[in-house]
């Protein structure tokens, strides 16, 4: 068990092993996203009230799922890096931050676009949208902190501490925003909750969510690999790779 843990912690081992998984993962991601998009955009039935505009959920919902899940990935990687001083975990944390922020941004933008035909306005102070905005701030804080330290080690440890604090606080922030929203305006427009959705609409959504998870893993691995190459640029095995590619 521990041997496995330490091997996983070696950036070189991860770089070489992930090289073998990448084509498979990329293939699965591509197939899932293609099926999900075609099914969702082309074949799922129109929504009775919203018409075709509801179809944006096939991007919006998976992006919001991963925006939140991505924060936990980042914080847990940061904790592993702090506790076991594992370099690879630090690199995963650093790669997860911009990716999560981008997904949060996508979720916000698609939410706003969806809001226009549904509520007649791009922005409402709805509990979910507000929570998403807070999540974006949390991501931006971690990224900004990471970039303001000159020392790489200090940057990693500082952003790990911050993402852990954020992780502990996210449930509290989400709950309080929920409470605030119910207090100020009883929910008049409710999102179509997943279980009440028609199965014909719901199944393509599941495929899209699975596709987004694979996409997240793929991009995270790619980001981490380039971070590994950057951090280990002085080591002999990276130099060997560069020489091989030049030939």
């Amino acid at each position: 068990m521990w041997q496995w843990f330490h091997r996983l912690g070696s950036p070189r081992w991860f770089y070489q092993a992930s090289g073998k998984w990448l084509p498979w993962l990329a293939g699965i991601t591509f197939v899932l996203l293609l099926i999900g998009l075609m099914w969702g955009l082309g074949f799922a039935p129109r929504d009775a009230k919203q018409g075709n505009s509801f179809r944006i959920i096939y991007i919006h919902v998976p992006a919001s799922f991963l925006a939140l899940a991505g924060y936990y990935v980042m914080a847990i990687a940061g904790a592993v890096g702090l506790i076991w001083k594992m370099k690879l975990a630090d690199m995963v944390m650093k790669s997860a931050a911009p990716l999560g922020a981008a997904l949060t941004f996508v979720a916000l933008i698609t939410g706003a676009i969806w809001g226009k035909p549904t509520w007649g306005t791009y922005w409402v102070w709805d509990a979910r949208i507000t929570s998403m905005l807070v999540l974006l701030f949390l991501y931006m804080g971690v990224m900004a902190l990471q970039h303001s330290y000159t020392s790489v080690d200090a940057a990693n440890r500082a952003s790990a501490v911050l993402s852990l604090v954020g992780m502990v606080n996210i449930p509290i922030i989400y709950k309080s925003v929920d409470w605030w929203y119910t207090l100020h305006q009883p929910a008049t427009i409710k999102f179509t909750e997943a279980p009440t959705m028609h199965p014909d609409m719901f199944h393509p959504l599941l495929v899209m969510i699975a596709g987004f998870y694979c996409f997240y893993a793929l991009v995270l691995i790619l980001n981490t690999r380039s971070e590994i190459l950057h951090r280990e640029r002085r080591s002999s095995w990276v130099k060997d790779i560069v020489l091989q590619n030049q030939r």
Partner: peptide, 18 residues
């Protein structure tokens, strides 16, 4: 650190404000 501090701390302050 000043501006960064407000970015970091503001989300944590929200429940208190609410």
């Amino acid at each position: 650190g000043g501006l960064l501090l407000s970015l970091i701390v503001m989300p944590l302050y929200m429940p208190v404000l609410i």
